[in-house]
Design a protein around this nucleic acid. Structure first.
Lengths: 199, 199
DNA sequence: TCCAGCATAGAACGGTCTGTCCCTTTTAGG
DNA sequence: CCTAAAAGGGACAGACCGTTCTATGCTGGA
């Protein structure tokens, strides 16, 4: 668990690394996250990334593929962060508290605009859609991380504890975006503390 | 409080009621909620509502205005529901429980696709945007309803209790859409029960 | 009855979006 | 150094989008 390396898989052909590609994903991440996915055209992304049209379509099958790269980048980043915390903190209680602190700090950061996955799912509701499924995969993974931690903690019902923390996380993400981030952070930390204490 | 009539305000000119207008708002609500706002064009809405182009633009300033009508309709509906509950149940504990049950049932209903307001905010991130502000107004109202209830309940810190319940609500909305609705419902009911009991 | 106002039908507009294609220039590896 | 791949820079098509306009049909109230 927590390897953070299971969603890789790419076509065997190809490019995989390139300055232009990195610039595209970076710019797309900034714009998609900041202004919404459907609200930003690939023209905009290409222009701000200083990448020509042909180059874009050599690296990506189309916009959806770029969106997928954006979300998978965010996913990778979060998995790496969680893995780093897990490596550093062995106790499940400490791990959960650290994760909560990480989220709390995130929602209070400048430019926080909600959870990229929740937001993406709002724009791609079709369960069959690749992007929607990317969101579901990320969420399933994170839930499993929490279930595992509460199991190691010896919680009477790991699943319910994990779901409660998941709800607190999601609620904090929403409130951090559409309400008072400081209060949202406090609610999350307080709630997770209670969950861990209650076991 | 709970009057449910404070966000009305329309141009004094005008139409306000008409079969065509009602059909437009109804169709738009169904499509915007089910497929996302930016993913649905006004062409589609007009076609499925069997309303001509000119008629649409006589009733609405443009797409944004239609989106506003969609969200204000949802807002009105929720305010009416909350007002009905408040009228029926006098005790604050019973009121909060009833609200939680209402939300829990909602997320378990067929065709639930998340909170219309959270979803709309994901598509319209600009705080200056009319639609974004409509979302914020709805959320501010609902939070105030909760704060008031917890105050009447005699909670030591009304605000924190209200924010906790708000986080649970938001988390349940997200999880009901992107996870297991039954589990989300259980988490919400359990959490609100605890909040009310803890006072 | 007549007419004002609302609804309809349909064409047309400019703009933007995704995606394809072509050609030239730059870059990097053998 | 030479060549093949990558990147740049456009032009372009086709679709859709939101919007405006005109001409016409329908209906309810004075």
């Amino acid at each position: 668990m927590l390897d953070g390396m299971s969603t890789t898989e790419e076509v065997p052909v190809l490019i995989r690394r390139s300055a232009a590609r990195d610039r595209l994903v970076g710019t797309a991440s900034r714009l998609f996250y900041g202004e919404g996915i459907r609200g930003v055209g690939v023209d905009r992304v290409m222009a701000e990334a200083d990448v020509a049209r042909g180059t874009f379509y050599r690296h990506f099958d189309g916009k959806e593929d770029l969106v997928r790269a954006y979300l998978e980048g965010a996913d990778r980043q979060i998995r790496d962060g969680v893995a780093a915390v897990a490596k550093q903190i062995s106790s499940p209680a400490g791990f959960l508290a650290a994760v909560a602190h990480g989220i709390g700090d995130e929602v209070c950061g400048a430019g926080f605009r909600g959870c990229p996955f929740i937001n993406a799912a709002a724009e791609y509701p079709d369960p069959q859609n690749v992007i929607h499924q990317t969101v579901l995969r990320h969420r399933a993974w994170f839930r499993e991380v929490l279930v595992d931690a509460f199991r190691r903690l010896g919680a009477t019902s790991h699943e319910q504890s994990a779901d409660s923390m998941m709800a607190l996380r999601d609620g904090t993400m929403v409130a951090g975006y559409l309400g008072d981030a400081q209060r949202a952070r406090a609610v999350l930390l307080h709630g997770v503390t209670a969950l861990v204490a209650a076991r």
